[in-house]
């Protein structure tokens, strides 16, 4: 507890007036805590960390922490991050996005940032809904679930963030939930250190906008749902095909150390200069 208080005082902005915008039971605070613990664990200075966020509930995260912070436009956080990282590769760039942010409006930027393998950590806080605007369906809203724009049930299929990132060639691809905070710490610590494009998907409950419309009685039930329906990816792979339905694998799906785009660009410059 003392340790936690110390971290809060060190990493949260004193000049920013709290309270924060998050609803009771929201998982975003747990993610923010995990980012702080990971940065602290890695011994990074606050000056070398750039936290870039999009628009939405997750976007508000940037304002609370005492790093270099950029609150960008909706869906475009990764484009800003690409510019920052290329301009100064020494900076550690962490990008926080929601599901609508990263995959609906920002889907194109997400796949290209992964393909380009730009050296940033992309956190996708997936709560299956547009929370800030009042509970509209997003590209990760599960089929048949309810939202204010799908009052009769969602007919579209949802994105699988992990498979999408794998398909685009991201170096490090992982998934955790807001319930699995220790796993989250581990994944984030790894992702921030790893070269190239690193994805951490965090399933985080939005009781206010998603849970209430989809027959969850309270937030605790949503966290219990995560406990019941998630399974370590190693175990998931051992399961026979027919038992996999409905199970969400969590853990590390890809762990490559290919050099990031900014590193390769630096090498190109070296090569051109040595030719002169």
């Amino acid at each position: 507890m003392v340790e936690t208080t110390k971290l809060i005082h060190e990493y949260l902005r004193h000049s920013k007036k709290f309270p924060h915008v998050y609803c009771p039971g929201c998982g975003h605070g747990i993610v923010l805590g995990s980012i702080i613990r990971s940065v602290h664990h890695l011994g990074l200075s606050k000056d070398e960390v750039v936290l870039i966020a999009g628009i939405g509930c997750s976007g508000r995260m940037a304002v609370y922490v005492d790093f270099n912070t950029i609150h960008t436009t909706h869906g475009r956080a990764l484009t800003f991050a690409t510019g920052v990282k290329l301009a100064n590769p020494k900076l550690k760039v962490i990008v926080v996005m929601g599901d609508g942010d990263a995959l609906s409006i920002g889907g194109n930027h997400f796949i290209h940032a992964a393909r380009r393998n730009i050296g940033v950590t992309a956190l996708v806080l997936n709560n299956n809904i547009y929370g800030m605007t009042g509970g509209q369906s997003s590209s990760t809203t599960p089929e048949n679930s309810y939202s204010t724009t799908t009052p009769y049930g969602h007919l579209e299929r949802d994105f699988d963030v992990v498979n999408l990132a794998l398909g685009c060639g991201a170096n490090f691809v992982s998934r955790t939930t807001a319930l699995h905070a220790q796993l989250m710490d581990k994944l984030l610590t790894k992702a921030i250190e790893n070269p190239g494009f690193n994805v951490v998907e965090v399933l985080t409950p939005c009781f206010t906008q998603y849970g209430r419309k989809n027959k969850f009685k309270n937030v605790v039930e949503m966290y219990s749902w995560y406990r019941k329906n998630t399974i370590k990816v190693e175990k998931y792979k051992e399961l026979p095909e027919e038992k996999r339905a409905g199970k969400i694998p969590i853990g590390v799906f890809s762990d490559k150390q290919e050099p990031g785009f900014e590193e390769k660009y630096g090498q190109l410059r070296e090569k051109l200069r040595s030719k002169k």
Binding site: T79, F80, K85
Partner: peptide
């Protein structure tokens, strides 16, 4: 970049840096 929105986004990021 992948489009002009991303292009100007990257330019803003670089300028901030």
């Amino acid at each position: 970049m992948e489009d002009e929105i991303a292009s100007l986004g990257a330019v803003i990021g670089a300028s901030l840096a």
